[in-house]
Structure formats: structure tokens, C-alpha cells
């Protein structure tokens, strides 16, 4: 089986700092893949290289068999990779529904004049986006807040809205950057269920960056551990949990 996402020797240097060093990832279609590591391990930097925000210094990223290097975030999004952000980046002044609709914008098959002249195609497109966004809000349990401005949402809901918006782009791969950060135990349990449903019901491959070991170990099938930009372990959650190198990285060398 060919991997949906594959990186080879992915490396990035900022001046003298090698933030990510020779990272090899291989994510199969339908997998729930966890990328973990202590603070500053380079997890988000990997995400930024995958999604075209940073250009890798060395190494390649292939998505669905196509080379990603050198494409910008818009092109990567259109290839079918979508993400959320560790520091939430919603469109605060737009409503919750409109935020999700923005994710569907890239699939609009109308031009500006359809909208300015209000042709039939404009109204059909608006309805398509509205339906899609509303269904995803329902999926994420936000449908009763659809009309609120995004800035009025409480923290946990903001994280969910980011996921709904990313799903509206109809991705093949969803990259979640610490979706459980700042959530309490109950919210984390709900989130774990949601992530599993995204994979099982929507058939979307998920790449998860997370600090919360319990969450990652509970839902991911394969886990890879980064430390100071280097991969120190890769395997099933059970293997990772018993790996002495990982325990050392997380608890500190003693």
C-alpha cells in the first residue's frame, strides 16, 4: 500500500538552529497517526513544512504521490491537506457558520460576476456552502451557535470550529495541531470521540500533534516521537509507552 503522506529526510534550519533533522514520516490512508514530543521538539515546524508555510531546507514531502515542496499553503490546501492551528486562528468577525463556509470557498465553481449579478449559480453556491458548513457544525456539536460571531465562542468551541472549518475543505488528510490544549478532562474525552468519528465516518486520515499522552495513546494507531528535531521512536502506542528512550525524553534523563 502506498502512503498518503510520506516525508524523506525532512530538515529545516533557521540560521544555525536545526529545528527538524531528517524527519521521516509515513502515513497510510485511513490511519490515525500521532506525532508527539516535548515542547520545542519541532512538531509544529513539521506541520508548517507539510502545509507549505515553511520551505524545507532539505528532504521531500510527498502527498498522494505528488511532491509538496515548493507549493504554497493555498496549493497544498487544494491538494487535500487541511490543518488547525496550535494558537487558534479563526476569522473572529465572521459568524461561526461563515467561518465553516470559508473552508468550502475553494470548491466554489462560480466567478465574481455570478455573485455581483446574483445569478442562479450564486444562490446555488451559497446554499451548497451553507448546507455543508451546517452539517459539519452539527457534526462538531456547534449547530446551535451557528449565528454567533466566532469571537463570542468559548475556548473549547473555538477549537472545534477550527476543525469544522478544516473539514469543510474536504481534505484527504486532516492535521490537528494540539487540539486538546487547554481543555479539561471531559472535553478531551469528547474530542477523542470526535477525532475517531472523523476518521471512521468521514473517512479522513488524521495526523495528530498532541501533548496529552492519554489522548494520543488512546486513539492513535501509530505514534512517532520527536525530540530536539530528531525522531527517537516510532511504533504502536504500547511500544512507545514501554520505550526507555521515550520515557527518558519525557521525564528527563536521570
Amino acid at each position: 500500500m502506498t502512503a498518503l503522506l510520506e516525508t524523506r529526510g525532512l530538515t529545516i534550519r533557521f540560521g544555525g538552529l536545526c529545528a527538524v533533522d531528517c524527519c521521516d514520516l509515513s502515513i497510510q490512508p485511513g490511519q490515525l497517526f500521532g506525532l508527539i514530543g516535548p515542547n520545542g521538539a519541532g512538531k509544529t515546524t513539521v506541520f508548517n513544512m507539510l502545509t507549505g508555510v515553511y520551505l524545507p531546507s532539505e528532504g521531500t514531502v510527498h502527498f498522494g504521490g505528488k511532491l509538496v515542496n515548493g507549493r504554497n499553503p493555498v496549493q497544498v490546501a487544494r491538494m487535500g491537506m487541511s490543518r488547525t492551528f496550535q494558537n487558534i486562528r479563526l476569522f473572529d468577525e465572521l459568524s461561526v457558520l461563515e467561518n465553516a463556509m470559508t473552508g468550502a470557498h475553494q470548491h466554489a465553481r462560480i466567478n465574481l460576476f455570478d455573485s455581483l449579478l446574483r445569478t442562479g449559480r450564486h444562490f446555488r453556491e451559497e446554499e451548497r456552502q451553507r448546507d455543508k458548513a451546517y452539517r459539519l457544525l452539527e457534526f462538531m456539536g456547534l449547530e446551535d451557535r451557528a449565528g454567533l460571531p466566532a469571537k463570542a465562542l468559548p475556548y473549547g468551541h473555538r477549537r472545534r470550529l477550527e476543525i469544522a472549518r478544516a473539514l469543510a475543505t474536504e481534505p484527504k488528510l486532516l492535521c490537528l495541531d494540539e487540539p486538546a490544549a487547554g481543555m479539561n478532562t471531559g472535553e478531551k474525552a469528547d474530542l477523542a470521540k470526535l477525532i475517531r468519528r472523523i476518521r471512521d465516518e468521514l473517512k479522513i486520515t488524521v495526523l495528530l500533534i498532541e501533548h496529552d499522552m492519554k489522548l494520543v495513546m488512546g486513539i492513535c494507531e501509530v505514534v512517532q516521537v520527536l525530540e530536539y528535531g530528531k525522531t527517537i521512536a516510532r511504533g504502536t502506542p504500547a511500544e512507545i509507552q514501554s520505550n526507555p528512550r521515550v520515557i527518558e525524553a519525557y521525564l528527563g534523563g536521570g
Partner: peptide, 24 residues
């Protein structure tokens, strides 16, 4: 319209807009 929302998205957060496939 979808274009207006795209423009506001760019104003609110350009990186997020691009990541959602809005050609900013």
C-alpha cells in the same frame, strides 16, 4: 458572497485563509 467572506478571512487571519485554500 463567498468572495466577500474570503476577503474578510484574509483581513482576519491571512495565514488561516490561505490554509483554507483562499488564494489571498
Amino acid at each position: 458572497s463567498t468572495f466577500g467572506r474570503a476577503l474578510i478571512a484574509i483581513r482576519e487571519n491571512e495565514l488561516a485563509a490561505e490554509t483554507m485554500g483562499v488564494p489571498s
